[in-house]
Design a protein around this nucleic acid. Structure first.
Lengths: 140, 140
DNA sequence: CGGAATGGTTTAGAAACTAAAGTATGGGTA
DNA sequence: TACCCATACTTTAGTTTCTAAACCATTCCG
């Protein structure tokens, strides 16, 4: 029998292993984990500042610059200077980027649906409550 | 309001961010994530084959060779040739390695304890059941 | 106006891998 | 016994992802 913290550790290991490999996202082509991750963080609604993106991803601004440059070369995102602050750069998804976004979201949704199929609705409710607590503990 | 899969995604992001930074493990010194991870996989009881370690960590044998070489240089593990098969290499923790192992285990235990404090015992039970299901879904 | 703060980019380098080739040993089999 | 293939590990070159630190440009403010 495993302890709870071992169970958690095992799931983390499995998730990390899963998140390590590149995947194909329809016409958007093959994307590395951090590429699709960045697309996910940019989101479909409007643009986001480079620095906001960095803090959302939990990486440095330098890392974001490199990532966005690569995604721009793949025509998945566009850079536009901020209308009033000319230092700032807004990043947003192109149509092709949105395709990748939606396919990725659909993948996550399907995966979670698989989990839902194996559990009662009230178990899912408790699980999600625990996820919130966990997230709170990890916040900072 | 967030969906369940978004909650899960957020926790995964937080955990990844947490697991990315090196930490100090008492007299064992500062260890990178993959170093302490490897020590954890070797375990305190006896030795383990390089190839078994690779499959336990989910990486190639070449990666394990590099990791173990580094840990050996830090005097945290020892290599010994297998008694009957001289191709095989058994890896095991030194006393210093066991110190790191135990401190790491204690950290995990304490973290999980924090989570337990915020939830009912029956909620924890459901959570752990969900972790098992999740782990099963991720197996392959 | 002048200096500090903010927003982004660049660069060199570290960490954590992989893939593929190389070395050595073991186990059949003919 | 000689041969060959599989197993166990190591080595090497190269990739991905990221950081830290220096840099440039713009904006804010006393």
């Amino acid at each position: 029998m495993n302890t709870g913290s071992q169970k958690l550790g095992r799931v983390i290991l499995q998730l990390q292993r899963l998140e390590r490999q590149p995947r194909t996202f329809g016409e958007a082509g093959v994307l590395t984990p951090s590429e699709i991750h960045t697309i996910d963080a940019i989101g479909c609604e409007g643009g986001i500042l480079m620095s906001a993106l960095a803090s959302r991803l939990g990486v440095t601004k330098g890392a974001v610059t490199q990532l966005v440059t690569r995604l721009e070369a793949k025509a998945l995102v566009t850079r536009t200077t901020h209308p009033t602050d000319s230092r700032a750069v807004m990043v947003s998804l192109t149509e092709k980027g949105k395709v990748a976004y939606r396919i990725h979201e659909e993948m996550h949704h399907e995966f979670y649906q698989q989990l839902r199929l194996q559990l009662d609705p009230d178990e899912i409710a408790v699980f999600e409550k625990c996820l919130d607590k966990l997230s709170e503990l990890l916040r900072d």
